[in-house]
Design a protein around this nucleic acid. Structure first.
Lengths: 165, 165
DNA sequence: CAATGTGTTCAATCAAGACTGAAACTTGTG
DNA sequence: CACAAGTTTCAGTCTTGATTGAACACATTG
């Protein structure tokens, strides 16, 4: 499939917009967008460069970044020397555990803060303590959510696919 | 309390780092950091400017932004004409509902994508369908989480405060 | 082990947007 | 109502960081 179509281009830009809000470079968002809608579900290095009208260098930087953070994976296709990339399949489950890491950063910040305020009255610490307690609450919940998703995904997907048929 | 202390400065910069990752301007992160550790738990416009070594203009922009997204609130103190700002108290609960909005943006993007791929085989749609299904799963769960937090917060806070005493 | 097809690196360019500072505006007070 | 204090706005500056493009490195294949 070529990204020949204006609407598909637009879709990719919209994805880039959204990903930008999450702190990724636009180009990374474009790559994700393209890989969400292409058939087959992977693109080679230079297909990406061509279809996103970006330089090879920029694609290289971007695939590197997205691979590092676990969003992309590189695949080898028999009979091709080119690298191909596709979205990791357990992306959504993984999102739950990367959230964990984010929350832990906040929790650690709260710990630091409390250490600095150790001689202050309890009242002064309330904001930081609430952050700690909330973080712990979420950290406890996330594995449960991941677990539930794991269990329910097959049935939910099946339901959803049945609707299409 | 003055932010006279190097460690407190550092704490504020660390907060700014973390907030920057979440897509906020550094200055917004600094304001949040300062308001997490100051006593009393609010600061005036020019206390912020002074303690963060920022221009009044920049503080004005920042408080405006943070108020708009529901992180800060402006308070009036009797006997003062200055504006004071503090962190909204229901910040963490609210975080759960703003997550909802983010997820909905993704869900909508998936809807758009599926519309574009409507004539493609089901296989081509799997990535988008999984995004839809996952989004719906999370959207269903978030209110439950908010509810659980609401219920457990008092007891968790009390436990935590008892540890301090 | 060249030759060719791929991919990466990096210095330079460019663009976005954060921040400043001064002027304009608003609000409260005598 | 005039003055002063406080706040906002906005044009310009500056910083950061994304992107390019060309040189370099690597790998595959005949």
């Amino acid at each position: 499939m070529n990204i020949d179509n204006n609407q598909l281009r637009q879709y990719i830009e919209n994805t880039a917009d959204l990903m930008e809000e999450h702190g990724l470079p636009r180009m990374a968002g474009r790559v994700i967008g393209a890989l969400m809608i292409c058939t087959p579900p992977y693109l080679s290095h230079d297909e990406l460069a061509e279809q996103l009208q970006a330089s090879k260098g920029s694609i290289s930087m971007t695939t590197q970044l997205l691979t590092r953070v676990g969003i992309l994976e590189r695949i080898s296709l028999p009979g091709h020397r080119k690298h191909h990339y596709q979205l990791r399949s357990r992306l959504w489950q993984d999102l739950l555990s990367t959230s964990s890491e984010h929350i832990q950063q906040h929790r650690r910040l709260a710990d630091d803060g409390l250490h600095l305020l150790k001689d202050e009255p309890a009242e002064a610490k309330l904001r930081l303590i609430e952050l700690q307690v909330f973080s712990d609450f979420i950290l406890e919940l996330l594995p449960e959510m991941a677990d539930r998703w794991e269990r329910r995904r097959p049935e939910l997907m099946e339901e959803r696919l049945a609707q299409l048929a």
